[in-house]
């Protein structure tokens, strides 16, 4: 990874951070409804893995903390924000919301709100890739708590058995909603739980994007070469609560302070400054530029976009004019 790549990734991660923080404000202003699960603290996981993948080509799926993954795959941040605003111009035309961002043209398959639901869907994407003979892979991003669902074990077994090209990325942020991992999970190192399926499984620091990138490169090389699935556990931390309705009262201030010292943006920024590739002033300028861009382009677009029309309430429930509904094209 050269200096230019690092600077671009710093830009992308800072953009993701400011985007999510602006979502928080819009939620407080009641511009965004429903549930809102924010990503600050975990940026190096998404950006490190997808930097090593072919973002936009590889088939990506995740849970409800999905805005940043969609954007890194190529989704237009304006459309993501418009979706959060429930607008017709949103990525899911206002029908999905924060937990159901989709951008299929960039091979981002959503945004699912049942914990653990995407595991088998990811294996299915991989089965489809294998049948069609492409060399893309499926990548499934989920949190540690999803591994306590049956779908985790069912999908790992099937993926290993059928040698499916799927990378499971576990973003271990140590909490399942408001319950700390050691209070919900018998084995807290998630990679250890995968050994029963004979799938290579590795644990890595999820805060240092260069570490994530290298671990992901190795993982993706394995999966893309046809050797079957791979499990990558990234140790990370979310700064916000599970969702906006979370009091965040279950964590100590000391713990939060410790993790903030290992902030993924801070780590990369300091490294670039130390190497002489960035100045504090340039960073501040970049930050200002990003904040202005989000305000003047992204928020403006979401604010000014039209609402969906009630006349189209039932659109998208079923396929339109499917000839086989009425006995085929003849």
């Amino acid at each position: 990874m050269n200096a230019a790549d690092k600077k671009r990734l710093l830009h992308e991660m800072l953009y993701a951070r400011r985007f999510e923080e602006r979502c928080y404000e819009a939620y407080v202003e009641r511009k965004i409804g429903g549930f809102l699960h924010l990503y600050p603290g975990q940026e190096a996981c998404c950006h490190g893995v997808l930097e090593a993948a072919r973002a936009g080509e590889d088939h990506v799926i995740t849970g409800y903390r999905d805005h940043v993954h969609a954007i890194k795959c190529g989704a237009d941040p304006k459309e993501v924000m418009a979706e959060l605003y429930g607008k017709e111009t949103g990525s899911s035309k206002g029908r999905g919301g924060s937990m159901h961002i989709f951008d299929v043209k960039h091979h981002f398959y959503g945004g699912y709100a049942l914990v653990g639901g995407p595991f088998p869907l990811a294996a299915g994407l991989a089965k489809g890739i294998k049948m069609k003979g492409g060399d893309e892979i499926a990548i499934c991003f989920l949190g540690d708590a999803a591994n306590n669902q049956g779908t985790f074990h069912e999908a790992l077994n099937i993926s290993a058995l059928w040698e499916l090209p799927v990378l499971f990325v576990c973003e271990n942020n140590l909490y399942g909603i408001g319950t700390r991992i050691d209070r919900s999970t018998a084995v807290t190192d998630q990679y250890k739980r995968v050994c029963g399926y004979d799938i290579p499984a590795v644990q890595a620091d999820g805060q240092d994007i260069e570490v994530v990138f290298k671990a992901a490169q190795k993982a993706i090389k394995h999966v893309r070469s046809g050797k079957g699935p791979y499990f990558l556990e990234l140790m990370t931390y979310r700064y916000r609560g599970h969702s906006m309705s979370d009091s965040n009262a279950y964590r100590s201030k000391d713990e939060e302070a410790d993790w903030s010292k290992r902030d993924p943006i801070l780590i990369l920024k300091n490294r670039l400054i130390k190497a002489g590739d960035l100045t504090e002033a340039a960073y501040k300028k970049l930050d200002k530029k990003i904040i202005d861009e989000i305000e003047n382009e992204v928020i403006k677009f979401a604010e000014e976009s039209p609402e969906p029309v009630v006349e189209e309430l039932e659109k998208y429930v079923l396929a339109e004019n499917d000839p086989y509904v009425h006995g085929g094209p003849n």
């Binding site: 088939h59 799926i61 398959y109 639901g117 595991f119 088998p120 869907l121 990811a122 294996a123 299915g124 994407l125 991989a126 089965k127 489809g128 890739i129 049948m131 069609k132 499926a138 049956g150 779908t151 069912e154 999908a155 077994n157 099937i158 058995l161 059928w162």
Partner: peptide, 24 residues
């Protein structure tokens, strides 16, 4: 193409659904 699955109904049904997302 004719796949004997494990006894994992939610798992293999989800696999089929995921595969259908990309044209299977």
């Amino acid at each position: 193409r004719v796949i004997d699955t494990p006894i994992s109904e939610n798992g293999y049904t989800g696999v089929g659904i995921g595969a259908s997302f990309i044209g299977i």
